[in-house]
């Protein structure tokens, strides 16, 4: 494992920006800023005419490290320890589970908990638990 530094101020500031973006999306489009829900709706079947807006939002998230590169001169630090095979399996599970459960860390974690949604608290408690168990097993048992 690669050690990382606990950076509470950067974490709070970044979190606040995520919050600002979530509030703005609600104010502008009346939509929950749930990454999994917005991403899966880039694909058919389409239920409304909002495809361009969703695509623009997703492109904005994807473009963020490039803006970071322009401003700071370096891409954000990114240490991916998992091999391609594991990434393939993890990707399937993350994609399937987030849509099956109607949300991920953004939709349930940020927006849902902000709205005091009981479903979102259950979702967050559940994915935190299985994620922590998975990390425990892969790092300390296997």
């Amino acid at each position: 494992m690669v050690e990382t530094e606990f950076a509470p101020l950067a974490a709070l500031a970044g979190g606040a920006l995520i919050g600002v973006a979530s509030v703005l999306l609600m104010a502008v489009k009346g939509r929950i800023a749930g990454i999994s829900g917005i991403t899966v709706r880039l694909f058919p079947p389409y239920s409304d005419g909002d495809l361009a807006g969703r695509a623009a939002f997703v492109l904005g998230v994807i473009a963020a490290p490039l803006i970071w590169l322009l401003v700071t001169g370096a891409l954000p630090v990114q240490t991916i320890e998992a091999g391609l095979g594991l990434l393939l399996i993890a990707g399937l599970l993350v994609g399937f589970g987030s849509v099956w459960g109607n949300g991920c860390t953004s939709g349930h974690g940020v927006c849902g908990m902000s709205r005091l949604s009981a479903r979102s608290f259950v979702a967050v408690a559940t994915f935190m638990t299985t994620a922590a168990i998975t990390v425990y097993v892969t790092r300390h048992l296997v």
Binding site: V94, F96, G97, W100, G101, T105, V122, V124, A131, A132
Partner: peptide, 20 residues
């Protein structure tokens, strides 16, 4: 609302990536 996040969490713990 249990099974979805449970599966998501396993994938999240394997690679450290969630969708955003």
């Amino acid at each position: 609302i249990i099974t979805g996040p449970a599966i998501f969490g396993i994938g999240w713990g394997l690679a450290g990536f969630c969708p955003g």
